[in-house]
């Protein structure tokens, strides 16, 4: 690994549930090849999956960028969805606006954002109603 790091970019399709999670699976595979420890890979995989799925089910897709440095992995998720009206409410365990058809797939526990916070060392949410949401998460090695 060079000091400049390794970056990954993904377009996350908003309608396509059959590929939902694909970016996370790919990142996990790459981190494993790069030799990161299992606990780091687990944290990144969980946080990234929840963020990726949220973009699919709540924001009609978006992009994911992952920046890999020897001592830190940064995930940046951007979407142009509806935005989050009340971030502190959305961060509460159990809060979900997922519709019934989404819930029937197993989503909507309202645990995604709490998981993202729990499994990363830092998480920032920038969101604007009608414009979209940007989430930056960092995991220290």
């Amino acid at each position: 690994m060079t000091d400049a790091g390794i970056n990954f970019h993904f377009d996350v399709d908003g309608e396509d549930f059959s590929s939902a999670g694909a970016a996370s699976v790919e990142v996990k595979k790459n981190l494993r090849q790069l030799g990161f420890p299992p606990d780091v890979i687990r944290k990144v995989a969980i946080a990234m999956y929840e963020g990726e799925i949220n973009m699919v089910i709540h924001a009609n897709g978006g992009t994911a960028d992952v920046f890999v440095l020897p001592d830190e992995i940064t995930m940046v998720l951007r979407d142009q969805g509806p935005g989050i009206a009340d971030v502190s409410l959305a961060m509460q365990e159990g809060f979900s606006t997922a519709r019934d058809n989404i819930r029937s797939l197993g989503f909507g526990a309202g645990m995604g954002l709490p998981n993202m916070k729990k499994y990363t060392d830092a998480m920032e949410i920038e969101t604007e109603l009608g414009k979209g949401t940007k989430i930056v998460m960092r995991v220290k090695i």
């Binding site: 969980i46 999956y49 929840e50 799925i53 197993g106 989503f107 909507g108 526990a109 645990m111 998981n115």
Partner: peptide, 8 residues
């Protein structure tokens, strides 16, 4: 059965 619960 709740995926984000299972995930963690």
């Amino acid at each position: 059965d709740l995926l984000s619960w299972v995930m963690s």
